[in-house]
Design a protein around this nucleic acid. Structure first.
Lengths: 193, 193
DNA sequence: AAATTCTTCGAATGAACCGGTCGATAATTC
DNA sequence: GAATTATCGACCGGTTCATTCGAAGAATTT
């Protein structure tokens, strides 16, 4: 191995794939080890515990999401496009992540308070981004917003509302459809006539 | 409950959803019971064992697939359309079913020989359908096939080849793309010039 | 309404599983 | 060839899980 840190990352990515598929509980150390073609005990050379791996995965995944989101909004010019892109990428990511959450709501997972921390931090970042998108739209005379802070908060609340069914049942999700509808409403209520 | 058989079916459908998501091994009786809003022990009034439920689910699912396939090919007129539709529906179904298989390849699942039986029966049926589709195409002067039996077998082999990556890794599957390519090749090699 | 049958369930059980430890032993570095 | 780094098999104790069993709640029959 080139480097211990390198290999930790490999573990994080591999474990992340399994976690995201089966959740924390249903994923076993043996599976992770097998996927890495190594003995179960070897993993403990790199991580203290299963929970530690999980934490690292969530941290890593949060970073990936952050990057995806920032590149996503950079890839489009128009305020409407940026907002659309942001919302889509965000929801797509949460769809993928829903299994992590399912795992967490699973049982007595009180000791995962770091998730709460991440979520809070991420929420603040999201508000900031949304406010920026709104502000940019206003500057370009495409949006009309009384108070960007409050509007950003409102949008975030809506997005969180969309998350719920994802974590509720894996059944058919008409998310796309509802997403379009919501964006439509959002813009029609926001755009300068 | 209206009827014991009715309720067995309900169990099969509910259990099927969970099995298809987590596989045989990772699905617990408690989960099935909870999804049915009943005590775990109650399930044993309807089924002898977890394996029995699994068998019933696979049987049921095989039937569903059969129906989907026959209605699919009936929904289109042209031989090319029939063949396309058949192949698409079949691959879509196998994509969904891949988790079942993952479950089976999991461990020492030797006692699931009924799967082998079903597969054999299904393979024979598939050959029959494919041969019919080919024969129909020939009759309508759209296909030109030397020996419909052999050609049907060749097509089936190709389809099975497509299954492999599904059961290999859950990773991004560019199945759709490859499917199109294969159908293209198939028709170009088969169609009357 | 008593008896009988159908259905549900909580508690118990024994076996398998699983996260984590430990000491041995390769593999690599110095 | 000693020291350090990395891997692993075997094991442990607690947990989980499929399954059993007997009790008892509903429903039906007598």
């Amino acid at each position: 191995m080139v480097n211990k840190e390198e290999f930790r990352k490999k573990i994080i990515i591999t474990a992340g794939q399994i976690f995201s598929r089966f959740g924390f509980r249903k994923t076993t150390m043996d599976e992770i080890a097998k996927a890495l073609k190594m003995g179960k005990s070897s993993i403990y050379y790199y991580f203290q515990s299963k929970e530690d791996i999980f934490e690292a995965v969530v941290l890593y995944e949060a970073n990936v999401l952050r990057n995806e989101l920032t590149t996503a909004i950079k890839s489009v010019e128009s305020p409407v496009g940026k907002m659309e892109k942001y919302v889509f990428v965000r929801m797509k990511a949460f769809e993928k992540l829903s299994n992590y959450y399912n795992a967490i709501f699973d049982k007595n997972l009180d000791h995962f308070d770091f998730i709460e921390k991440i979520r809070e931090k991420y929420d603040r970042e999201e508000i900031a981004i949304l406010r920026l998108l709104l502000y940019d739209g206003v500057r370009k005379k495409v949006f009309t917003v009384a108070n960007s802070e409050y509007t950003a908060l409102a949008i975030q609340t809506t997005l969180k509302g969309l998350e719920v069914p994802l974590f509720w049942k894996k059944k058919e999700v008409n998310i796309d459809q509802r997403l379009h509808a919501i964006l439509d409403v959002l813009f029609k209520g926001i755009l300068i006539k």
